[in-house]
Amino acid sequence: VLGADAEGNEITVQNGRFGPYLKKGSDSRSIGSEEEIFTITLEAALEIYSQPKQRGARAAVPPLAEFGDDPVSGKKIVVKEGRFGPYITDGVTNITVPRGTDVEELTHEAAVGLLADKRERGPVKRTAKAPAKRKVAAKK
């Protein structure tokens, strides 16, 4: 037990299945090494709890650009960095930024036009693969 925070919640240091961690009520946070179990202070633990909880491998990234509201959906148009490169979205419709187009050169009108074209085309229709034919063994 390290101590208690300002609300009186007890903070403990424990070593678990996935390594050492701090526990305060139902909130737990990982700490660096097993050595820290014996050396961490209450002030350091409170500092860890003052930061927002990190989930997953990637933290939220701010948008690359913002273009105001979309005239069709009324939602804010933003350019975000995605797995396959930058894309334009209004929260409903997504369209990849065309190759050769620089994100800094995009205008509000171009973004609205690209989103309108995407809405007109509709969702991508994927073709279903035919199941593989099974070979039947010849009878002897």
Rank of each mutant, 00 (worst) to 15 (best):
G32Q: 13
R121Y: 01
D70K: 01
E43V: 10
A116C: 03
L64S: 03
R121T: 03
I37P: 04
R121M: 03
E104T: 12
A128M: 09
P131D: 03
E47F: 15
F67V: 09
S73E: 12
A137M: 04
L114W: 07
T39L: 03
P86I: 10
E109Y: 00
K53Q: 12
A110D: 03
G100W: 05
D69K: 11
P98E: 15
T89N: 07
A132N: 08
S50D: 14
Q14Y: 10
G25P: 10
K125Y: 04
E10S: 10
A44N: 14
P62I: 08
D117W: 00
V136S: 08
Q14T: 09
E43P: 04
R55Y: 14
E43G: 07
T127M: 02
K125D: 05
G56D: 07
D102S: 15
R121P: 00
A45T: 05
L2T: 00
R126K: 14
T93L: 04
R17V: 08
A6R: 15
Y49K: 10
S50N: 11
G68D: 00
V92H: 08
V78G: 12
K135W: 00
V79Y: 06
S73N: 07
I11D: 02
V103I: 10
V72E: 12
A130P: 05
K140F: 06
I48V: 14
D90Y: 05
A4G: 04
I37L: 15
D69P: 08
